[in-house]
Design a protein around this nucleic acid. Structure first.
Lengths: 113, 113
DNA sequence: CCTGTTAATCGTAGATATACGATAAAGCAT
DNA sequence: ATGCTTTATCGTATATCTACGATTAACAGG
């Protein structure tokens, strides 16, 4: 019904606490197929969804679902380009995972006994 | 039956490829309760399981399951100390996640067009 | 021995995730 | 318009996850 064509990445709800945000991002990485997709997109800086489907031993609909998970986590973005959709990884967002991870082992400097 | 008392961290199957390893670790972080447990353990350098249960709004059995997930991912270790079990985070393993993440955005130096 | 404490495990209910084929929607080409 | 291509979505089956209370096992103290 709604004429929607792959929305430009939801801003990932700024009102969530760091633990929520990290667990969401981590969950999106919690499947080998999605890691492979992300790696594929980061090696080629962009590419068509069809290329991803060819690259994985999964049905087109399954890959599309994995892409959706990554999209909703903000880790990839898709732009419509004629008949194809060009996906590219959001490197900043990938980097954000590392940042959040560091808040984990960061001992509050000087406050350890 | 088997007299097993919290094994000393399974070596995390060295035969898995990086994508598998990363997705496994990420999946273990893919729940806010587990992030909170990990953060808790990294702030106190060690602590009793009971303290974790008190710290979370979850039943003892639920927390125990989350601890199991973290243990099986190698992110925490538990040592029996009398009646208690002292859990501590494996910082090296947490660090490993960051390493694996970096293999993601590492462009194979010079091989990009 | 019996009792209380601590933490894992069992059993289970309900929710989410994963996979697939089928279908729908949208754009190009003829 | 008709047909072809591309990708998302639907419907569905199976599996895994999450949560809980109940139970079990192991230890400490009397």
């Amino acid at each position: 019904m709604t004429p929607r064509a792959c929305p430009p990445t939801p801003p990932v709800d700024p009102a969530t606490d760091p633990d929520e945000e990290l667990s969401r991002l981590a969950a999106a990485l919690g499947h080998p197929a999605r890691i492979r997709i992300l790696r594929f997109l980061l090696e080629r800086r962009e590419c068509f969804a069809g290329a991803i489907v060819d690259h994985l031993p999964l049905a087109q609909s399954t890959v599309s679902q994995h892409l959706k998970v990554l999209r909703e986590a903000g880790l990839i973005r898709g732009e419509v380009d004629g008949l194809h959709i060009c996906y590219c990884a959001d490197e900043e967002r990938v980097h954000r995972i590392g940042e959040l991870l560091q808040t984990l082992n960061a001992v509050p400097a000087g406050s350890e006994r």
